[in-house]
Design a binder for these strands. Structure first.
Lengths: 211, 211
DNA sequence: ATAAGTACTGTACCAGCGGTGCACTTCTCA
DNA sequence: TGAGAAGTGCACCGCTGGTACAGTACTTAT
């Protein structure tokens, strides 16, 4: 883990983003006030506008940071699993298990996904933020799609299985799982859904190897 | 179809709810202003507060109506499919196909789910609205779970398949599929995800019947 | 025809919010 | 020690949600 040394300004900016992320995931962007953020961060309104041009600028920074972090997490997961096996199917299944374990180890229910949150509030954002949101999902989807293609080269998928849809399903399961886990307040829901998806991948590619 | 005759007041109320639903799904509840609703509905602020005690009351009405409507849609889907076959597995698969077809026939991308939208903004609502949201998801999940149990009685599920998780997966796929379809602006995404889920159900219960 | 609701309108008002502008100060680090 | 980074303080604007309440037009049962 590289612990970046932050300048004072960067630290304040990060603190504001942390507070904003938490608030946005709980109340939505529109209901999150600059007033409450600066009160919690302990600075003045002028201080806030020193760091962000306006609220839209905050949204953009929030989204960029979130997407970047998550790409890194997924990368890391698959890099680690690739170190354990050369088989693309096994590697993918191990990566999903790592992912599920990580989700299961969270102290509380998953805090939520900024991309999903913004998706349901996109008309209050500028065009570039909506594009950024799409790019985030597309990057995620591409990481999975490329791996499923590798798997499909070696193991012919069973009838009815479409690789593209299977790749998108992973993202859908995570986003949907977060919503279920939050709405029902069931902490283990998300990890279980990821494991259910993992089982589908197994069934989709393993010819008839029954344990 | 029972076309209810609405009194003038009820009609206005419905008009406000229609406008609010559309706006909330696009901008979020917090960013939806009463001002814009009354402007579009062609009445005054006093008129709005005649129908709804406050904004929270509007949220509650919105949610109740949405959940009610969707329960009816799912019911209808499975009732129609049950008329075509006695086999619970075939019935469920036909129901899912109906559902996917219905989604594919929508003129635009799916407008979004109020429950999911509220889930990402729940801290601005009162306790009872959050509970209502959970009840909505639970009702949906229960409708599917009971059917999967029926299926599992007749067809033993394959190794690794958990009935509860499979039931929740249906909801997760739909909620996640809506997010993908909106974020990527891909109209056919949601229906494809439902069909992918349907395929998983097939694989999960059909022993080794390969077409 | 009339009376009792129902479904509003009009007006006045308040606090909180996002946002702007600008002069000023303090802190940090090379 | 000096320059730029990281703020503070204050004054101000328009919009929004929300409250309060008096008045009015439309509808419908008797």
């Amino acid at each position: 883990m590289d612990v970046k040394v932050l300048s004072k300004g960067e630290a304040t900016r990060e603190r504001l983003l942390d507070l904003a992320e938490k608030a946005v995931l709980q109340k939505g962007f529109g209901a999150t006030t600059i007033e409450e953020l600066i009160a919690a961060a302990g600075l003045t309104k002028s201080g806030f506008f020193y760091h962000f041009r306006d609220k839209n600028d905050l949204a953009q920074a929030l989204l960029r940071r979130y997407i970047q972090r998550h790409n890194d997490i997924i990368d890391d997961m698959f890099v680690r699993s690739a170190e354990l096996t050369d088989d693309p199917l096994q590697g993918f299944l191990i990566g999903l298990k790592f992912f599920a374990d990580m989700l299961a180890d969270l102290p509380n229910t998953h805090p939520g996904c900024i991309v999903a949150s913004f998706c349901y509030q996109d008309q209050q954002f500028s065009r570039d933020i909506r594009d950024l949101n799409g790019d985030g999902i597309r990057a995620w989807r591409a990481q999975i799609h490329v791996r499923l293609e590798e798997i499909a080269k070696r193991y012919p998928p069973r009838a009815g299985v479409e690789i593209e849809a299977l790749a998108d399903m992973c993202t859908a399961i995570v986003e949907g799982g977060i919503i279920l886990s939050r709405t029902l307040d069931e902490k283990q829901m998300l990890a279980r859904q990821v494991m259910a998806y993992r089982n589908y991948v197994k069934l989709a590619f393993e010819a008839r190897v029954e344990a």
